[in-house]
Simulated scan of single mutants.
Amino acid sequence: MSDYLSGSLRRLRPYTPGEQPQDRTYIKLNTNESPYPPSPGVLDALNRQEAADLRLYSDPEAGELKAALAARYGVGLENVFVSNGSDEALNFAFLAYATDGRGVAFADITYGFYPVFAGLYDIPVHTVPLREDFRLAVEDYLGLHQTVVIANPNAPTGLALTRAEVEQVVQGNPDAVVVIDEAYVDFGGESAVELTGRYPNLLVVQTFSKSRSLAGARLGYAIGPAELIADLERIKYATNPYNVNRLTLRAGTQALADRAYFEENCRQIMQTRAYTARRLEELGFSCTDSRANFLFARHPHLSGQAVYQGLKERGVLVRHFDGARIVDYNRITVGTRDQMEILLQRLEELL
Rank of each mutant, 00 (worst) to 15 (best):
Y242F: 14
C266I: 05
V185H: 08
N173C: 07
A226E: 14
E167G: 04
Y237T: 10
R218C: 10
A251F: 02
N240V: 04
G224K: 03
N240D: 15
G197C: 10
R212Y: 04
N265V: 14
P200V: 12
F208K: 00
E227M: 02
A260M: 11
T157K: 07
P156E: 06
N265D: 13
A176P: 00
T207W: 06
R212I: 04
P174R: 09
G188N: 05
V166I: 15
A183Y: 14
N201Q: 13
L203I: 07
N173K: 05
E190N: 13
A183R: 14
T162I: 00
E227N: 12
I150G: 02
R212W: 01
L202E: 05
P156I: 08
E233G: 09
L195Q: 10
A217N: 06
A230E: 14
T196P: 05
G252L: 10
G216D: 12
D181Y: 07
A255S: 15
R163F: 01
G220V: 10
R218V: 00
G197K: 15
G216R: 12
V204F: 09
V170K: 07
T157Q: 05
Q254D: 02
S213R: 15
D231Q: 11
Q254L: 03
A215N: 08
Q206D: 13
L161Q: 03
Q168D: 13
L202G: 11
T248A: 09
A222I: 08
N245I: 02
S211E: 03
S211F: 01
D175H: 07
R267P: 01
Y221Q: 12
D231G: 01
Q171S: 11
Y242L: 09
G220T: 06
V178Q: 09
F262R: 12
R163G: 07
L228G: 03
V169E: 08
S191I: 11
T157P: 00
P174F: 02
D181S: 15
G197Y: 00
G216Q: 12
V193F: 12
I229Q: 03
E194V: 14
A155P: 00
T248F: 01
K236I: 01
E190Y: 08
P225S: 14
V178I: 12
N245A: 07
I223E: 05
A222W: 06
Y237C: 00
A155M: 13
A192R: 11
D258Q: 10
V177Q: 03
P200S: 13
R163I: 03
I180N: 04
P225A: 15
G197E: 11
Q171V: 13
R212T: 01
L232T: 06
L214W: 07
V169L: 03
L195I: 12
G220W: 06
E167V: 08
T207N: 00
L161D: 07
N152W: 08
V169H: 02
G220A: 06
D186N: 14
S213M: 11
V177M: 02
G172Q: 03
L232F: 09
P241W: 05
